[in-house]
Amino acid sequence: MPHNNTSDSNDHPSPALITFEGVQKTYDGENLVVKDLNLTIRQGEFVTLLGPSGSGKTTCLMMLAGFEVPTSGDIFLREQRLNSVPPHKRNFGMVFQNYALFPHMTVEENIRYPLKTRKMPAAEADRKVARILDMIQLRDFAKRRPTQLSGGQQQRVALARSLVFEPQLVLMDEPLGALDKQLREQMQLEIKHIHDQLGLTVVFVTHDQSEALTMSDRVAVFNDGVIQQIDTPSNLYEHPANAFVAQFIGENNTLTGRIESVEGQQCRARFGDGFITGALIGPGLAVGDATRLSIRPERVKLNGSARQLPNRLQARVREFIYLGDHLRVRCELAGNDEFMARVPVDDFETGMQPGDMVELGWRDEDVRALNAS
């Protein structure tokens, strides 16, 4: 029976559904694609595996699906060891980016297919298909073939087919990658609503951080085969565990510096030509250590808004980027000419020009001193 030795910190009342214990994967016998993975996914959770290409997230999903076998370690479904259980006996729903619909079948027949293979009685199958067609709002399209549907509609059918047999776990591998931005955002909310309605457990793979933040209860950020941090979206954004997570989740400014003093969770750090800022200190750092200071653009205030703040310094404006409800102001600060401030349109002081000097400011608690490497 698995024991729970996960790296997450989120106390959750639901029982563990999936447990990875010391899982490693190598394809060539030398390079580990996944390194010593310990992870618990609880019943009813929406967990996203997020990371750049080659970080190990898709390999984890494929091992969970049964298409890949761990080189070492174990994967459990509750108390059952899954390592040698073939994919079709795991009874998981799967949704892929390419939809994988049967072109010769109608929408209804595609959705019914998993019920047919499970030899479900016709009346019960009819009821389940009708319910899921209503849920994805495609009842009027039931007799159409996939080629007569838009990309978004095809993706809904693929989703319905993976859900109709009420699997205990649904695995999704970049399922929205082929959709345009507006449709993608709409589908993110639809999948989340279906997850909530049916009480599903979902493991979702993406490299799109905004998608992960929008949909997930928890996000596991992968890099180089290792989970860097697993946490709620807000904790990942506000309290990144290291410099990689800070850079990968959301937009982020980085300044290189050195820790001058430490008091509890706070520190003072020196950067640029003798500038000093207060900051929250990250794990494992001490006085004298090199650090990367992480500041979100929306936490940086300009001119009048900066006057009451404890950390103020001069910067030169390089560029304005207009984005409708806000502007991104690119500045040169302490040798970083990509330092961004995000300013709501209503707060923007008109008359500011590229080349002007501005005063930037931020609060101590809006800066995190993180590992330098």
Rank of each mutant, 00 (worst) to 15 (best):
K35R: 13
L82G: 01
G93A: 05
R81C: 07
T59A: 12
F141W: 13
P121D: 14
E79G: 15
K89Y: 08
D74S: 15
M120T: 06
F96V: 09
G56K: 09
R139E: 10
F67D: 15
V107K: 01
G56W: 04
G44K: 09
T71K: 05
G54W: 06
L49Y: 13
C60F: 08
R112Q: 12
L77P: 00
K89L: 13
K143I: 00
I111H: 03
L39K: 04
D134S: 10
L138R: 01
K128I: 03
L115A: 08
F102E: 10
L77Y: 11
G73H: 03
S72F: 04
E108G: 02
P114K: 12
V95A: 11
L82F: 11
D140G: 07
N83Q: 08
P114R: 07
R90I: 13
R112E: 13
Q80C: 06
T117E: 10
D36A: 13
A65E: 14
M62D: 08
V34T: 08
F76W: 15
D134N: 13
T71Y: 04
T59F: 11
Y99R: 03
A123I: 08
F96A: 07
P70V: 01
M135E: 12
R81H: 05
P70I: 00
F76R: 06
S53D: 05
K128W: 02
K143H: 04
P121M: 14
K119T: 00
